[in-house]
Write a protein that binds this DNA or RNA. Structure first.
Length: 424
RNA sequence: GUGGCUGUAGCUCAAUGGCAGAGCGCUUGACUGUGGAUCAAGAAGUUGUGGGUUCGAGCCCCAUCAGCCACCCCA
């Protein structure tokens, strides 16, 4: 069949099978979030462009967001991230909220980017934030949530790790090698690239930024100093806490993690696959979440995790759930047109008892109905022809064992429930 | 935004510039009240789209759209 209108570039169709996986992921996220006492919230999917212009970097919004004028001429943006909306929601009720807030959200985001592996234009993202606390223990809590999530989906510390750094530490190190503050951004970008470029190209890049040979050498020393975290009281305390929680194995100090976002001011972290280096989630500590949207400065820590890369990583470790759509569903066949009413009646009798029932919608050959059941993943099929209906006893066939027994119409519901319960 | 690779049946892929093909799937039957296996038959296509070169284009050229991959960027 010819599809004349293609899907929008970079979008995904969630056919039922994939939808089950998406739901499964959502449930994992929900259960971890709630386990830590976080409350779910949701922000609008569309926002005025000004909200983003206020902070997240002008380029980001202008070039990588879906923006369109509404009928009144205002520029509306499909939200490319949640933090500005969160900041607004907090600022609007700043004085009446009960701090520290622990909020989480899972929903769709849009980015006008060129699609490639692990990157679509429409994605789902888990956002979780602890707002109104400035302690290392708060930072540690978010990191331990990452670890708890990884653990809950079946990943191990040998497959993924959470790399942690402290921007404050990096800034003081940069002062030590006399990098001027206005070059902070550029140097963070340079740090970000230390593993992506060959060393001489990387040095060249550093020189272009105006760094001296000795500064570049100093920077390299910093980036290879695995013990540098001991200079950061924050990191020391965070690692202690993670140790107590038995999550220390998931975490490692990495001076190369700085994150791109300007609003991070302290601890930053990134959850990534050990092989391949694909980043699954990222977050950090910020000192002034709401100041840019008109509130009083409020510190917090949070992270975001996209569903696309998460699914790729889970898939590559064979951790996506096996989808068996109708394993707990019974199919009631229609023997012929004359028996259809009885089948419909019986189906509803079972449903009234809480059993999931697929009633075949037309009186076609039994062969076809059984074939449908088999391909649907249904295990038990009810067969009720004139003889069975006359006797008040229906056949229940187990497609997995290829066995068939008779059950009494009256006791059918409880009998089927018993059979279904046995299976699981 | 920049670059590379790829678009042929529902899916995965063949076809030296010369008749449009296979496997899987699908439909039907072998099986008159029973799924998976086997066997047989059948349906299935304007070769992504639009131009061009050529006696002749799935194949070569240009454009465009889409997918994949890398860069860029990373919320």
């Amino acid at each position: 069949m010819k599809v004349t209108i293609p899907a929008v570039k970079g979008t995904r169709d969630f056919y039922p099978e994939l939808m089950q996986v998406r739901k499964w992921l959502y449930q994992k996220i929900q259960s971890i979030s709630e386990l830590y006492g976080y409350q779910e919230y949701e922000a609008p999917f569309i926002e005025r462009i000004d909200l983003y212009a206020a902070k997240s970097g002008e380029e980001l919004v202008k070039e990588q967001a879906f923006v369109f004028p509404d009928r009144g001429g205002d520029l509306i943006t499909l939200r490319p991230e949640l933090t500005p909306s969160l900041a607004r929601m907090v600022a609007q009720k700043q004085t009446e909220l009960n701090y520290p807030l622990r909020w989480w959200s899972y929903g769709p985001f849009w980015r006008y980017e060129r699609p490639q592996k692990g990157r679509t234009r429409e994605l789902f993202q888990w956002n979780i934030d602890l707002i109104g606390s400035n302690s290392p223990a708060s930072d540690a809590e978010l990191i331990s949530i990452c670890a708890a999530f990884f653990e809950a989906v079946g990943l191990t510390p040998s497959q993924v790790c959470i790399r942690v750094n402290d921007r404050g530490l990096m800034e003081s190190e940069m002062r030590r090698i006399e990098v001027p503050p206005e070059q902070k951004r550029d140097v963070f970008r340079l740090i970000d690239r230390v593993n992506k470029l060959p060393e001489d190209a990387w040095r060249q890049y550093g020189i272009q930024l105006g760094l001296s040979q000795s500064q570049i050498g100093g920077l390299l020393d910093i980036l290879h100093d695995k013990m540098l975290w001991q200079q950061s009281p924050n990191l020391v305390e965070i690692f202690e806490i993670l140790e107590i929680e038995n999550y220390r194995d998931w975490v490692e100090f990495d001076p190369r993690i700085v994150r791109g976002l300007d609003y991070y001011t302290g601890v930053v972290f990134e959850g990534m696959e050990r092989t391949g280096g694909r980043s699954v989630l990222g977050g950090g500590h910020y000192d002034n979440l709401v100041a840019d949207v008109g509130g009083e400065p409020l510190a917090g820590v949070g992270f975001a995790m996209g569903d696309v890369m998460t699914m790729i990583v889970l898939e590559s470790h064979n951790l996506l759930p096996n989808v068996r759509p109708n394993s707990d569903t019974v199919l009631v066949t229609i023997f012929d047109k004359n028996c259809q009413r009885e089948s419909i009646r019986f189906s509803n009798q079972l449903r009234a008892a809480g059993i999931r029932v697929l009633c075949y919608p037309e009186a076609v050959k039994l062969q076809k109905q059984l074939r449908f059941a088999d391909k649907s993943g249904v295990r038990y099929v009810i067969i009720m022809g004139p003889e069975e209906i006359a006797k008040g006893q229906f056949a229940i066939k187990d497609l997995e064992l290829s066995t068939q027994t008779m059950i009494d119409k009256i006791a059918a519901a409880s009998e089927i429930k018993r059979i279904l319960a046995q299976e699981s």
